[in-house]
Design a protein around this nucleic acid. Structure first.
Lengths: 176, 176
DNA sequence: TGCTCCATGTAACACGTTACATGATTGC
DNA sequence: GCAATCATGTAACGTGTTACATGGAGCA
């Protein structure tokens, strides 16, 4: 179970509500790990039961149900334990690859527009990453260790997008 | 549902038993899509119920239960329908990224050996891909369309492994 | 005889997705 | 007053993982 540990890490960086976590998961860690709000609420409930985190009504809750979660010592111990485990590299499960292979088996299926759409998506993601890099990591080598590690995650994303664009362009030429 | 369509594609290329599919999924398509034999048997049963594929006792079955599956016209129609759908780029869900972020939040967790292990894994995968490329695609530009598409899948894998190695080396330097 | 590989399957559970529901707050 | 956003949740379902079970075939 790794979503829970991603949430623990995110909560360590900043105690938050489930809603805020869901939105942050669309940024930072979320560049590499998407989760719906339902998954997040489910995991938060489990982790609270397990004694990894505690929640309290948010200071700015008013009459809403807003709750803030923070990591308990037991949660930090669990995160340290988990971090020491080895892990398998992610798999590259991309539906587009299957479609292209179907195209190879059945003859031209007109996948060029889909490839163009993908290229555009990768380009806008790349532009977003580069903006963040300019804004937050311009002075990288002199930044604190934690910021440098965060910069490396961003670079991983940038590399991936650049690659994907280059590859898709070559694929597009082949389809024509 | 995309595993079923990956299986359809694989069966179009060659009618096979579930067991053979599981093993082929550890090669070719399986470079980009891992599935356990249980998932595969489950999907095959569903697809046969849906009329996408048909099975018959294998010629070499002897007294075993070995069955060969082949794609029916309905299955091919379904694959064509599905191939025309747009699809989202895969997400980069890598546990190592979460571990590194935990390292950034909590201080040095000693992740260097894990990074070294990862680099070794990527290198052996890369070596495997390059062997296949030499063996099957040395004369790429003169090969038939289908083979060229297969070559592009392999190149995608090669690019990914090269990238991962370069990135992990830089990360390793930062951790030291 | 016992070992490994071939070949298929059941069951239970963990994780992820989609649809739907509820009620408060903010801005026009 | 109405719509959008904030914030949390239930339910159902689809997909992926793990453990376990069964029996034939080939080999030493």
């Amino acid at each position: 179970m790794a979503l829970s540990h991603a949430l623990l890490t995110s909560l360590l960086e900043k105690s938050s509500s489930g809603y805020d976590l869901a939105r942050r998961f669309d940024k930072s860690i979320g560049f590499f790990w998407h989760a719906t709000h339902q998954q997040i609420y489910r995991e938060l409930a489990r982790m609270e039961l397990a004694g990894w985190i505690a929640s309290s009504s948010a200071p700015d809750a008013g009459k809403t149900r807003k709750r803030i979660y923070c990591v308990l010592p037991l949660g930090q111990v669990e995160l340290l334990r988990w971090a020491a485990e080895p892990s398998a590299p992610m798999d590259l499960r991309d539906e587009l690859m299957v479609r292209l292979r179907a195209d190879a088996a059945l003859g031209s299926l007109g996948l060029a527009p889909e490839l163009e759409r993908r290229i555009a998506l990768h380009q806008s993601q790349l532009a977003l990453y580069r903006d963040i890099e300019q804004r937050d990591f311009a002075a990288s080598p002199s930044l604190p260790r934690a910021a440098q590690i965060h910069h490396m995650m961003l670079k991983k994303g940038i590399l991936y997008e650049e690659n994907s664009i280059a590859w898709a362009r070559e694929m597009l030429e082949l389809l024509r």
